[in-house]
Design a protein around this nucleic acid. Structure first.
Length: 292
DNA sequence: AGCCAGGGTCTGC
DNA sequence: GCAGACCATGGC
């Protein structure tokens, strides 16, 4: 189904979108740079307005109850040049979900949150966010990332700040990073910034690397192990063959998939992982009626 | 109040 | 190779 773009004086209306929900996609643990606006700040006929940044651009975006998206103060050119790809709106999720839903448990996870899509985030931004994520909770990760952008990013207006570049962070000392209150992760962030800005870790070469090599490249960074590398590759480089194993996914495998993921997930392991992660973490019934 | 969180490193067997 | 202590901080 082709997207229909309508330019209005205050932004861009995008209709014909299937399988996409702002809260499900922005609040399912893959992205930490968007926040919902207080309901009082939302235009009445629009619901669920979110604001945040990606790739150095700020965005305020709303979703109507019929699913249509409204990109505030955005031109069709800006949409086509960036946000269309960022939200992965040209991928046929109905088809992907149909394949995954051949498995009964995945079927439940998809029904629970059918509007999840894997975002195409920048590699550096995803890498930093998931360095911060280790042994941490999603709420606090969001707060630390927010302070990181406010303190070291560029002011984009509307209360939005860009994600700081590797060079900007590499110029910092450990003491400079204390304002983040990121604990033991600060030294990991610094090492990532230094190795990426010096080229010792070459992020621009990652897309053309085989998965294992790409993973080893990222794991050259102090504080980046298998799980953080998988997250950076899945969310920051769109490597759908990655399946980050956090405590929730370990529970999912132990309880629901002792034999591993079903064959129908073969081509979309990372996407299947995202449905299952969100389902396990937020649906109280996720681990009930096993084998029923 | 105390356990837990989208882990990784370092040490000691 | 592998278990266990340790790491900072705050959410619930």
């Amino acid at each position: 189904m082709p997207l229909s773009l309508t330019t209005l004086d205050c932004g861009l209306l995008v209709e014909g979108i299937d399988s996409f929900s702002l809260p499900m996609t922005l609040d399912c643990g893959q992205c930490f740079t968007f926040s919902p606006l207080p309901v009082s700040d939302c235009i009445e006929h629009l619901c669920q307005t979110w604001r945040g940044t990606a790739g150095g651009q700020a965005l305020t975006i709303s979703q109507r109850t019929d699913g249509a998206l409204f990109f505030h103060d955005t031109t069709a050119q800006q949409f086509d040049a960036f946000w269309r790809s960022y939200f992965d709106l040209d991928t046929d999720y109905a088809q992907i979900k149909a394949v995954l839903a051949q498995d009964a448990t995945l079927q439940k996870a998809i029904t629970y949150a059918p509007g999840i899509r894997i975002l195409r985030q920048r590699g550096w931004e995803a890498l930093c966010c998931f360095i911060i994520s280790q042994n941490n909770n999603i709420k606090r990760i969001h707060g630390i990332v927010e302070r990181l952008c406010q303190t070291f990013g560029e002011d984009l207006g509307n209360g939005c700040f860009s994600f700081p570049s590797p060079q900007r962070l590499a110029a910092c000392s450990l003491e400079d990073l204390a304002v983040l209150r990121s604990g033991f992760r600060a030294k990991y962030l610094l090492d990532a910034a230094q190795k990426v800005s010096s080229g010792e870790v070459n992020l621009s070469a990652i897309p053309s690397m085989p998965l294992e090599q790409a993973k080893q490249e990222l794991m050259k960074i102090y504080g980046v192990g298998p799980k953080v590398a998988d997250c950076a590759l899945l969310y920051g480089f769109y490597r759908l063959e990655c399946c980050p194993m956090d405590v929730w996914m370990k529970r999912v495998f132990a309880v629901l998939y002792p034999q591993g993921l079903p064959d129908c997930a073969r081509d979309y392991i990372g996407i299947a992982q995202q449905y299952l992660f969100h389902y396990a973490r937020t649906c109280p019934q996720a681990f009930e009626e096993v084998g029923a």
